[in-house]
Amino acid sequence: MKPLMLQGHERAITQIKYNREGDLLFSVAKDSKPNVWWSLNGERLGTFNGHGGVVWCLDVDWQTINLITGGGDSSCRLWDLETGKNIATIKSNSSVRTVNFSFSAYQAAYTTDKAMGHPCEVFIVDTRTVDESISGQAPILKWEITDSKVTSMVWGNLDETIITGHEAGDIIQWDLRTGKKIHSIKEHTHQINDMQLSRDGTMFITASKDQTAKLFDTSSLELLKEYKTERPVNSAALSPILDHVVLGGGQDAMDVTTTSTRQGKFDARFFHLVFEEEFGRVKGHFGPINSLAFHPDGKSYASGGEDGYVRVQSFDQSYFDYTFDYNRE
């Protein structure tokens, strides 16, 4: 299939996400304007103007009413999706690295960077009524992270826990009633760039700079599977309909000229969920892939790259027909 190329950003894409029904695709980049697109034809619905710098992260609630973004201008912004208006702004002390709505969208969690004399902190805020009053509200819960900072985060089941991935490779599960650690593991040796839940939320996949992606159980943090590559992994996503995993990454920009001349470092790589074996690649980007997302119907996926493009790629019939050779050797 011919992929759609969405060129709404001037700089590298930092994160992309679909809404729950998959009709809208959101993208944020190192420029200050988050974009929203119709995923079907790539038409741009609008941009959210208001941030004053790089936007690191975004999340959309399950009813597709509000969007939340966090950025380097030390703010978290809530947007009305129908009009694109900025309805609330939460100021923080340092740049906001990750932000996520809970499943119910009654709460949102965000984390800030350790910078400018401020520690890395996790905040849980109430988002039941979204208006300007939210900026004056005290967070429901906040706690400080003393060791390496949080680089990715997901909500656990039933909105009872959150799981954070850290710069040093740790993964920590936090109890939201107390703000205390439940589980802490260190399966990665380098920064965790991305974490994404499976469709039913029982598993999540991490993408790490240590050139692997790993699959964990959401409640026990037990390591289930490991997918190895030979380059840093920036993002990983789980197919909602098939036992497939897609990994995206590539060298850091500074390494591009010094390592291999071989092309194919920037393609999306498909692995089998269970066998941990790679079976396919899709080329396209001119730079490392920074974020990947499967369409909720599993029939297409989108990738956002360092080259500033978002590519929406529908799968051909050959992808659905492909079966793994169980009996080889």
Binding site: P3, M5, G42, R281, K283, S318
Partner: peptide, 19 residues
Amino acid sequence: GPNPATTMVSEDVFMQFIT
């Protein structure tokens, strides 16, 4: 309808299966 300035259709890209 899609604005050609922001939405483009690029060349065909096929998945390469690794056997």
